[in-house]
Design a protein around this nucleic acid. Structure first.
Lengths: 195, 195
DNA sequence: ACCTGAACACCGTTCAAGT
DNA sequence: ACCTGAACACCGTTCAAGT
């Protein structure tokens, strides 16, 4: 298990640390306003920093996202651990899926970045997304073992489902709960064939 | 009902018509290769045409997409009409949803464009997407009337669901059928509460 | 009427220097 | 060590002219 901390706040020169923090807070507001596609040059400019300084600290956009969201996303693992102790495996999975969708909607366009990074081992977000997927896998297999969730679904399919819900909910927020309800219901193991 | 034909092939000067056709075929292969985000300047260049010529024929990227896909997308309306005559309202909806997902996956990134255009009345794709949504609505309400589909879903939610399936399937094609199966199953009206 | 090449303001990325 | 401003090759869009 290679769970090394990605919280690598630089401990070097004082101005370097100051620039690092300024970039993070500027990026946070820029992403919140313009989505994850916000101009990086713009972020550097409003942070009062040369653009190359931004690139040195965060070589890619995904590195910046990891620095901003890694901690929160890794919180989904802790949430999963908690829920594993709850009485209803089915309800635990549903609750966690809802939380995961919320996390993936932190910024406009974020879901795309998350899904892309899961498919790209060189992405700085890759390990984080894999951890989220693994956290979901625990709850999924427990619910499958309990017999309430269809057994043909694997962790990757669950991740895709959550991502697609977040993607749609980002565009039509009014339908967020309904879309999630449909998907969670669709995961239920079929016991009847009435139609 | 404002269903005027959008097949407005220009009937003016001969070179204008030739450029129009060249742009269409070039755009088709460019979108197929690079997704709907393909460079428009590049398309004009390889079509052997000035970039402004492209913009005159197709003021926006969505206008180009409409010219390329409008006919095929409007085919979903015809398909819906056919399926309205089929014996099983439930199966008819499921079949049409599958077809709609396939249509939305014609080019990489297309689903995004379709969903955006549905929310934007000024888009050249707007009317086409609304027609698709309306086609789905017919099958939806028939199935709801038959009692097999949950009654709280409306046409917009169905469109969101189809779009999200297409979005996810574009990234993880191996799960396409499974994601669709989950969603279609989730639309089923709940008759039991076993859990 | 319809066309084209060049310009414009952007983008992410990389350069050559500065202290 | 760490920084910056300027350059590079792109993008979509618009310009001033051409025939």
């Amino acid at each position: 298990m290679v769970a090394r901390s990605t919280q690598a706040r630089p401990a070097g020169r004082k101005d370097a640390r100051r620039n690092y923090e300024r970039l993070l807070t500027t990026a946070r507001t820029a992403f919140a306003e313009h989505g994850v596609g916000a101009s990086l040059n713009d972020i550097a400019r409003t942070a009062g920093v040369g653009n190359v300084t931004l690139y040195r600290h965060f070589p890619t956009r995904q590195a910046l996202l990891e620095a901003l969201l890694g901690e929160s996303l890794r919180g989904l693992k802790a949430r999963s651990d908690e829920l594993l102790a709850s009485p209803s495996p089915h309800q635990a999975l549903a609750t966690w899926m809802t939380a995961a969708v919320e996390h993936a909607m932190a910024y406009r366009g974020l879901v795309d970045a998350l899904v892309n990074s899961l498919a790209d081992p060189t992405s700085e977000l890759h390990a984080t997304c894999q951890a989220v997927k693994a956290a979901g896998a625990q709850l999924l297999t427990r619910a499958q073992h309990a017999g309430t969730i269809r057994p043909d679904i694997d962790a990757s399919a669950l991740f895709s489902l959550i991502a697609s819900a977040a993607w749609a909910a980002e565009r039509t927020p009014a339908y967020r709960d309904q879309l999630l309800a449909v998907m969670i219901d669709g995961l239920r193991r079929r016991t009847d064939e009435p139609m």
